[in-house]
Structures are given as C-alpha cells and as structure tokens.
C-alpha cells in the first residue's frame, strides 16, 4: 500500500527538484576521425561508463543514445559513431547530414591522425550545416609518455578553426563526459540565442514540446469516487 503514495510523492518531489524529466530535445551527433583513434571507445565510455579494451574496428556506423541535462532541460543525444577506415569514407559521408554536433577525434600518440584533421574538418564543414558544433578531441590522453602531438599545437589548430577542444581518455573517462556535454551546451546555447533554426531540416535538433497529459481515464476514477453516497 505504501509504495503507491511513495511513488506519487516522489513524483512531486521530483517535479519540484528536477523539473519535468521528459526530454525536450533530441540532438544528433556524429563522431569522426581516423581509424583507431578511439571513436567507439569514447561512445562506449559515454553511454556505458566503461572502457572497451579490445574494441573491434567499426565496420559501419554504430548508434548510441543517452539522456543528459543542460540548463534543466532533458536532452536525448543520438550519437552516430562512424567507421574510420579510409575505404569507408565515401559511405560515412552520408551520415554527416543533419548532425547538430560533430566530435572530431585524433589520437595524441599518432601524428598521422592529427595531420588528417584538416581533411575531416573539410568534410564536416561541407556536409553539415553552418551551425553544427564541431568539437575536437585528442584521445588517449592517458598515454602521455607516447605523446606525438602536443596539447598546444592542437589547441592552436582548434582556435584557428573555431573548434572547441579537449584532450580526453576513453580509457580513464577523463574529459569524455565534458566533451559530449560541452557540445550539447553549445548547441543549446545556439538554440537559445536563435542562431540555430530548429525548423531547418538539417539542424540536427528535434524539439519535443511537452503535451498536456491525458486525463480521461483518470476522470473516470474521479467520478466513481464522487458518486459515493453515505
């Protein structure tokens, strides 16, 4: 018996403390970058809070989802993790369309993956809308001893190209959450200041306005109760 009203109670407690928890937006993300930079591991770390030690090469496009909160708004992230192999490049380009956020990943221990960033960036710029938030992630920050790309040069690259940037580690989880959340915050900010038009087909954002709940079933129980005669 007690659980019923505990349930109710919590619901109200919840409503007051956490706001409505139906998500209001869906943001589409893509993760791009060379093969083996750890794109899938970043996604896995973000959705499952776990490191996938021997993650096979992605042959295709993985899909993951998580609900986050930005400025009290529940946002559902739909994340497309693309195959990094060069031979799939032409195919993975199909997935850029309609992305609200693009996480562009390189491996700090392999310079070649950093050198290819401009080519990835070109694709990202050409194939997404101008408001797509591009976030640069230098992955494998835990392998500092094998570092092949300095933080400063990557930071400079990011600044020159107007990208957000962190070094992260899918293994330790360091900055992983931040990268995904900061991207969402930026997208949300773009919505708030009107620079991202939600009506545009390729904004990568779906708004889910909360609808009034249905009450007719409920009214039924109400009626029964009121009919009481004593």
């Amino acid at each position: 018996m007690s659980l019923t009203y505990v349930d109710r109670l919590l619901y109200f407690w919840f409503k007051m403390s956490a706001g409505p928890y139906n998500y209001s937006y869906i943001f589409k993300y893509i993760i791009i970058g060379d093969m083996g930079v750890g794109k899938s591991c970043l996604l896995h770390q973000f959705t499952e809070k776990k490191f996938m030690a021997d993650c096979p090469h992605t042959i295709g496009v993985e899909f993951g989802t998580r609900i986050i909160e930005v400025a009290g708004q529940k946002i559902k992230l739909q994340i497309w993790d693309t195959a990094g192999q060069e031979r799939f490049r032409a195919v993975t380009r199909s997935y850029y369309r309609g992305a609200a956020g693009a996480l562009m990943v390189y491996d700090i221990t392999r310079r070649s993956t950093y050198n290819h960033l401009s080519s990835w960036l070109t694709d990202a710029r050409n194939l997404t809308n101008p408001n797509t938030v591009i976030f640069l992630i230098g992955n494998k920050a835990d392998l500092d001893a094998q570092r092949d790309v300095t933080y400063d040069e990557a930071k400079q690259f990011a600044e020159e190209n107007g990208l957000m940037f962190v070094e992260a580690s899918a293994k330790t989880g360091e900055n992983v959450e931040e990268a995904f959340l900061e991207t969402a915050k930026k997208i949300y900010q773009n919505i708030q200041d009107g620079s991202l038009d939600l009506n545009a087909a390729e904004s990568g954002v779906q708004h889910k306005p909360t609808q009034p709940g249905r009450t007719n079933l409920n009214n039924d129980s109400q009626t029964n109760r009121d009919n009481c005669s004593c």
Partner: peptide
C-alpha cells in the same frame, strides 16, 4: 501542483 495527478483520499497517506 499538476492537473494530472489523481486526487488523494485519507488512506493514500503513510
């Protein structure tokens, strides 16, 4: 607090 919530009777309390 919300029009959605069903009304409570005395017995709905802990």
């Amino acid at each position: 607090i919300t029009s959605n919530s069903p009304p409570k009777t005395i017995k709905d309390h802990e």
